[in-house]
Simulated scan of single mutants.
Amino acid sequence: MSIAITLHVLSAVIWVGGMFFAYMALRPVAASLLEPPMRTTLWRDTFNRFFPWVWAAVILLLVTGYWMLFKKFGGMAHAPLYVHVMNGLGLVMMAIYLHVFFAPFRRMKQAISAQDWPEAGRRLGQIRMLIGINLIIGLVVVAVASGGAYLIV
C-alpha cells in the first residue's frame, strides 16, 4: 500500500504541479515576451516534453487508485464519499486531457507545421482554457484527497 500511495501522490504532483507552473508562470511570460510563431512553437515543444509525463501520471493514477480502492475498501460499494469524488473528478480530468492531446494539441502542431500562426494561436487558446479548467479541478482533487476524510463523510 505504501508503494501505491507514493506513486499515486507523485503522479498527482507531477500532473497538477506541471499545469500550475505552465498556467501561472510560463503562460504569462510567454504571452508578454514572444510573438505568435515563437510562442506557439515554445508551447508545442513544452507540451511535447510534458505530455509523456502526463500519460505516465494518468496510467499510474488509475492503476494505483483502483489498487488502493479495492485493497483498502474492497471496491466502490464500501468506499467513502471523498473517494468517489476523487475518482469522478479524476476521470473528468483524464477525459479533458485526452481531448487536449488528441484534438487541439494535434491541430496546433499541424498549424505550426503549415506556419498558420493564427490557427496555431487559436488552438493554443483552446488548450489554455482546458488546462485552466483541469488545473481548477486538479486543485479541488488535491484538497479532497488531503482533507476529504475529514471534510466529506
Rank of each mutant, 00 (worst) to 15 (best):
E119H: 13
S32K: 10
W67D: 12
N87M: 10
P52W: 03
H99D: 08
F105N: 04
M1A: 13
Q126R: 13
A143Q: 10
A145S: 11
I131G: 02
L69Y: 04
M1Q: 05
T64L: 08
M108V: 04
L33V: 06
D116H: 11
V54I: 12
L61C: 04
I136P: 07
Y23Q: 14
L151R: 05
I59K: 04
G88L: 11
W117R: 14
R49I: 05
E119M: 15
R128H: 12
G88V: 03
A79H: 00
G90C: 14
F105M: 15
Q110T: 11
G147M: 06
R123Y: 07
V63A: 00
R122V: 06
M94G: 09
L10S: 10
Q110W: 05
Y23H: 14
R106W: 08
L69P: 00
M38Y: 07
Q110S: 15
I152F: 13
L33H: 04
W117T: 10
G74C: 07
G75L: 03
I5H: 10
Y97L: 03
L130S: 14
P37T: 03
Y150T: 08
I14F: 13
A145Y: 05
M19H: 09
R128G: 09
H99Y: 15
G132Y: 11
A111T: 01
S146V: 02
S32G: 10
I137Y: 07
F21A: 10
N48Y: 06
V9G: 09
Y97D: 04
W55V: 10
S32V: 02
I59D: 04
S113F: 08
I96V: 15
N134W: 00
D45Y: 03
I136Q: 06
A120T: 04
Y82N: 03
L62D: 11
V9H: 04
R106N: 09
V9M: 11
V142A: 15
V141T: 06
G88Y: 02
H8T: 14
G65P: 04
R44K: 14
T40G: 06
A22R: 00
F50K: 00
L135H: 05
M19E: 08
V13R: 11
I5M: 10
G18M: 02
I5V: 11
G132E: 05
G138V: 01
A22C: 06
A111H: 00
A57M: 02
V29H: 02
L61D: 00
P104Y: 01
M38A: 11
F51K: 07
V153N: 14
V140A: 15
Y97I: 02
V92E: 00
G17P: 13
M1Y: 11
K72V: 10
L33K: 07
Q115T: 13
V9K: 03
R106Y: 09
W15C: 01
I133A: 14
L98E: 05
I136Y: 08
A79S: 07
G18D: 08
Q115L: 05
W53S: 08
A30G: 07
M93T: 12
G147T: 06
A31Q: 13
V16A: 15
K71N: 09
P28S: 12
A56H: 05
M93A: 15
M86N: 08
P36G: 02
N87K: 07
V142M: 13
A56P: 01
L98Y: 06
A77C: 03
F20T: 14
P52G: 06
H84S: 08
